[in-house]
């Protein structure tokens, strides 16, 4: 049923498609993973993505004592390297953490521009399951970048998974309310990017 609250795809409403997200492999990440994430960003969030060539991982972001990369530093480095209104999603094969948490699957700037997702803890399952997990974490973090917080609907991708097992239980979909909010914010993003003379 169509209602006044149903979202209109932003790109349909506002002209020819433009890339809203740069997908940035940080070091070696397989092509298939990048392509599947890009396809799902487009399909579920109406976020058209460009896959960029691999970007070198910032050595300063490596926390020697913890043998992990600092996700916050990675995000800050990406934001410096890729200015402009277009969003960015870094994919990395190494383990990442924040100063306060022992590990994270992904990290993002709430209502900002950048996110980073690690495949490191998602790989205990085989091909399809691993890709599903990667897509779920990527969509979740990009929704944070659009400004959405966690959701308490049991069947929503914005529910905060406490571990990988809970991540597996989440559907590959947002609840109606989050989907509506995503559509609204993507529309605003399209407007912002189109009105920026030098988008990139």
């Amino acid at each position: 049923m169509t209602t006044s609250l149903d979202p209109v795809p932003a790109q349909v409403e506002q002209g020819p498609a433009i890339a809203l997200v740069r997908l940035i492999p940080l070091g070696p990440v397989d092509d298939l993973s990048c392509q599947v994430v890009a396809a799902n960003l487009q399909a579920l969030m109406d976020l058209a993505a460009d896959i960029l060539p691999p970007f070198p991982v910032l050595p300063d972001a490596f926390m020697e004592a913890r043998r992990q990369y600092d996700a916050v530093q990675l995000i800050n480095a990406l934001a410096r390297a890729f200015p402009g209104p277009t969003l960015g999603l870094g994919l990395i094969g190494s383990d990442i953490a924040t100063p306060i948490l022992t590990y994270v699957l992904g990290e993002s700037q709430l209502g900002g521009r950048m996110a980073v997702v690690s495949t490191y803890r998602l790989t205990d399952a085989g091909g399809r399951r691993k890709l599903e997990r990667l897509v779920k974490v990527s969509l979740h973090e990009m929704a944070h970048v659009l400004g959405l917080g966690h959701c308490w609907q049991p069947q929503c991708l914005m529910r905060s998974p406490r571990n990988v097992a809970q991540l597996d239980e989440l559907p590959m979909a947002f609840c109606d309310t989050c989907q509506y909010e995503i559509a609204r914010r993507v529309r605003n993003l399209v407007r912002e990017i189109r009105s920026t003379p030098d988008r990139h």
């Binding site: 924040t98 100063p99 306060i100 917080g149 905060s160």
Partner: peptide, 28 residues
Amino acid sequence: TPSGLATLVVDDEEAIRESLAAWLIKDG
């Protein structure tokens, strides 16, 4: 998990303070 609760994070290390605040804000 309830949200909307007013929370004060007190820590002298900026990285810890900001990182914890960011995590809590995402949780509402």
